[in-house]
Design a protein around this nucleic acid. Structure first.
Length: 894
DNA sequence: TTAATCACG
DNA sequence: ACGTACGTGATTAAC
């Protein structure tokens, strides 16, 4: 077996990776997608070929000998995108860290280096594979040199391999003749002229016949077709030059010895650091069998399962001692329906797994955990997703509220969320990576698809690792996260808003909301009947039966069978979205029916039928409120989503009616009036807007009066509507296109509205410009309470991405501040209800709205509590107005 | 699993 | 010239 060398065309592969991999950035905002893609391709070839040697060649930006011959060489090439350009030096650094030879040579291109090394190595009897995206390299193919071109099809990388025979089969010429083909046909991307009018077909036909340019020139008069004959005859010198430009050098003077480019030792400490820095998570696995990572979880040796009752007692006694002081413990609860085990870390060397078994019963464990929690008041208990486990610590309660102090905990997931609200996960694995620079095995790696209950029996060792490791990660991260929150001025946000909010959300989830199941079932039937009537009518109009729920089938019916004028919109065909259909509705009655069908189908599937499955035995829906999902700081609601229950459409309102208070209670529902615009007024300090809020009840009317220069009472409905849309636009990050869509007007008109608005409110203009430039400078935006949102897109060179970043920079501080304020209000209301010892409970939040299930005899008190809690959550330069209503169902109360 | 659609603020 | 309003989650169809 002869030895193998892999040669990689650095720029070509990096370029290919850049366009093939969606934009990625690491925590510092460095773009990493091209590097990531490059490495993927690299590893693929390494795995496949297991080469003895490896080398990567790069171009230098300096002019090469080809530029000296032809000034316009590569002259039409666009400059490299900055996101790609910044990755080039980093990629070289990465390769060097992996002990991969990087070659570049002034005056020459990577192709020439590759050619030289390939031929020299092949001469030494080494088998060479050249990896490139560029077909120009095919001329280098020979019996010992294979050209390998990776292609990405549907996310899967496939490779086209070229030996000389493959080149011949495809192009009918030998690799060497390929140079002459290119000389004739030219190359637009390199700006090589060739013979004008001669394309790839003609060029290869000619070379197939004559085999070399010299021979072609000798037979000029017999050339066919006539067009090529003329072109070639007239451009002999240009073709010769083109050939010179096209031929890859194989004798570049370089200081390179293949023996010095041994493949191996890719995964070392240097490369590990860089992989971590660039957040190449799944590639870190490659380091697993090296001693770099093997030594990482040094905590493993201290993991200990404890079942002996006396030992367990000792651990908890010690935990109580620690948690009652100022030191921390790490806590991980393992639960699936029932409590199964806890992982608990007392120090670097005391890491325990305590399963429920024998005398260690579930209730014993819960009691002892409560003991630990009840003595803690200095954020001694580091854990994650505390809300999900608060019920365990509920041993002592007052009026139904857990006695546990919020100051007992530090929730690492929530803390990590504040630092990077756009991350997708804040589990122990991510924490380890970010705060400890350690790569822990993930939950999936340890437990796979096993349920916890199964894992207890089938993979206990891994379950022990999981429980111990996560508690250890919380323990180790807590101080670092705290430190970082403090240095970023976010600790106050964490302490005064997010941590207390956990308890509010917990209580809301516990309470749930009562739903009239029978009403829901009845309504589902009504909807079902209406839907089948519409269905029949639609089939009749269409002339055939089809699945109306399938946008694909519907598109075919509407735009092909019924021949409606179509605007192709989506990737995979016609758009049948509501705004498209609404334009067609006046001309085609069936379209209105489809819209109605869609509306009813949605109501039935998502709400009437969808909600019933969430009704618990107590007749209530206990949804989940998530505190670490949104990029802006809002909370989100799942299983079910109680924040998108219908209200706008008439048919949908019936759904709201099924949400009812329990016997002896009523709903009190309060919502902020235009909180986001008020925040805008406050943050910008715009006197006119502030004045408008201080004097007028109708801000959109006031805006219209200001913008159109008419007295308040003369504002037309249309003017008010437009002003309202512009106000929304401001909050969303104004764009003329968006506004024009919303108002169904031209972009030009929309632009005029915006200009008029900014002319009327110059301070607002200055303010939002400031938001954008601040975000551009810092890479993130901030709310009034220092909530951060990272906006890497704002530095993109891609217009669309950058524009998006700019809109986010305008919106996030406003939407985020509103989120901060209502969170404060929730805490206020929760605390007041608790302090007054009331039976009434806060049960829902819908972004600017709070719903309290109120005992009938507490209505007056609660009204006051809600108004106070919401209006006085913060003092702005404008009043915070709250609309409060009482009702026997959610529709009536809203 | 992803794309399209639509419910809410 | 680029092609969009900001933030979510559930359902369905179709790969």
């Amino acid at each position: 077996m002869s030895e193998k060398l892999i040669l990689i065309d650095g720029h070509s592969i990096l370029n290919r990776a850049f366009y093939g991999v969606p934009d990625l950035t690491n925590a510092e905002g460095i773009h990493t997608n091209a590097m990531y893609g490059f490495l993927n391709i690299l590893f693929k070839f390494l795995d496949e070929e297991k080469p003895d040697y490896i080398t990567v060649a790069f171009d230098l930006s300096a002019p090469t000998f080809r530029h000296k011959v032809f000034d316009g060489y590569k002259g039409t090439r666009k400059p490299m995108q900055p996101e790609l350009k910044q990755q080039v030096p980093l990629m070289k650094e990465l390769l060097k860290a992996m002990n991969i030879t990087v070659v570049e040579q002034e005056g020459y291109e990577a192709d020439d280096i590759l050619g030289t090394i390939a031929k020299e190595s092949a001469a030494k009897g080494i088998d060479v594979s050249i990896v490139s995206g560029d077909r120009d390299l095919l001329q280098l193919a020979d019996e010992h040199i294979k050209i390998r071109i990776p292609k990405t099809k549907k996310g899967v990388t496939e490779v086209e391999d070229y030996y000389p025979s493959d080149v011949f089969n495809l192009y009918g010429v030998t690799p060497h003749e390929f140079i002459d083909v290119k000389a004739l046909m030219g190359d637009t991307s390199d700006n090589i002229p060739g013979a004008p009018g001669v394309g790839p077909k003609t060029a290869s036909a000619i070379i197939q016949k004559y085999h070399s340019l010299d021979n072609v020139f000798e037979h000029l008069c017999e050339l066919k077709p006539p067009k090529a004959k003329i072109s070639i005859t007239e451009n002999v010198e240009q073709i010769k030059m083109s050939r010179f430009l096209s031929e890859i050098k194989i004798d570049v003077p370089i200081d390179y010895k293949v023996e010095d480019s041994k493949a191996g030792d890719f995964f070392n400490e240097n490369s590990y650091e860089l992989f971590k820095k660039y957040n190449f998570k799944n590639m870190l696995k490659k380091f697993e069998n090296t001693d770099i990572i093997a030594k990482d979880p040094e905590c493993y040796e201290y993991f200990k399962k404890i079942s002996d009752f006396a030992d367990v007692e000792n651990v908890f006694n010690k935990a109580v001692d620690i948690a009652g002081g100022i030191e921390k413990i790490g806590l991980s609860i393992v639960r699936e329906n029932e409590l199964i085990a806890v992982g608990i870390t007392l120090s670097d060397t005391e890491i325990y797994y305590i399963p429920v078994s024998g005398f260690v019963t579930e209730s014993y464990l819960a009691d002892r955990l409560s003991d630990v929690v009840s003595v803690a008041s200095n954020r001694n208990i580091a854990s994650a997703n505390i809300k999900d486990y608060l019920d365990i610590f509920e041993k002592d309660k007052i009026n139904g509220y857990p006695l546990v102090s919020e100051k007992a905990f530090i929730d690492t997931a929530i803390a990590a969320y504040l630092l990077h609200p756009s991350n997708e996960s804040y589990d122990y694995e991510s924490l380890g990576r970010e705060f400890l620079s350690l790569t822990y095995p993930s939950k999936t790696e340890l437990l796979g698809k096993l349920s916890i209950n199964k894992a207890v029996n089938e993979a206990e060792d891994n379950l022990i690792k999981y429980a111990c490791l996560s508690s250890y990660a919380y323990y180790k991260c807590a101080d670092k996260i705290t430190e970082q929150l403090k240095s970023e001025n976010m600790y106050e946000l964490f302490e005064t808003i997010e941590m207390p909010l956990i308890f509010v959300l917990f209580e809301m989830q516990q309470q749930g909301i009562s739903v009239d199941k029978q009403a829901l079932v009845d309504y589902s039937k009504v909807l079902g009947t209406k839907i089948s009537v519409l269905e029949k009518e639609i089939y009749e109009a269409a002339g055939e039966e089809f699945n109306i729920n399938s946008p694909k089938q519907l598109g075919v019916i509407l735009f092909e069978r019924l021949g409606m004028p179509n605007g192709k919109k989506t990737k995979s065909g016609y758009s049948t979205a509501a705004d498209v259909l609404e334009k067609l509705a006046p001309d085609y009655p069936v379209v209105s029916k489809i819209l109605e069908y869609r509306q009813l189908a949605k109501l039935k599937s998502t709400y009437a039928d969808g909600l019933t499955q969430y009704i618990s035995e107590d007749g209530r829906i206990h949804g989940t409120f998530n505190q670490t999902i949104t990029a802006t700081g809002r909370i989100s609601s799942t299983e079910p989503n109680l924040q998108n229950i219908p209200i706008r459409m008439e048919m949908g309102k019936a759904i709201r009616k099924v949400f009812v208070p329990k016997d002896g209670f009523v709903f009190l529902d309060a919502d902020y009036s235009q909180i986001e615009l008020r925040i805008l007024a406050h943050m910008s300090g715009d006197e006119k807007l502030i004045e408008a809020y201080n004097s007028s009840a109708d801000i959109h009317r006031a805006t219209a009066a200001q913008v159109f220069g008419v007295p308040l009472e003369e504002v037309t409905d249309e003017q008010r509507r437009n002003a309202k849309a512009v106000n929304f636009g401001i909050i969303y990050g104004m764009s003329s296109f968006g506004l024009s869509q919303d108002l169904s007007i031209s972009r030009k008109e929309a632009k005029e509205y915006i200009e008029r608005y900014f002319a009327s409110y110059p301070t607002i203009k200055t303010f939002i410009d400031g938001l954008v430039s601040d975000a551009k400078e810092k890479g993130y935006s901030l709310t009034m309470y220092n909530r951060r949102r990272e906006i890497p897109e704002i530095k993109s060179s891609n217009f669309m991405q950058r524009s998006f970043g700019e809109r986010v920079a305008m919106n996030a501080p406003i939407q985020g501040t509103a989120a901060d304020i209502i969170k404060l209000a929730m805490i206020n209301v929760y605390n007041a209800l608790k302090e007054h010892n009331l039976r009434s409970r806060l049960i829902l939040q819908v972004h600017d709205e709070l719903l309290v299930e109120t005992a009938e005899d507490e209505v007056d008190t609660v009204k006051q509590i809600m108004l106070d809690g919401m209006k006085n959550a913060v003092s702005l330069k404008v009043p915070l107005e709250v609309d409060l209503k009482e009702g026997k169902d959610w529709l009536e109360a809203h």
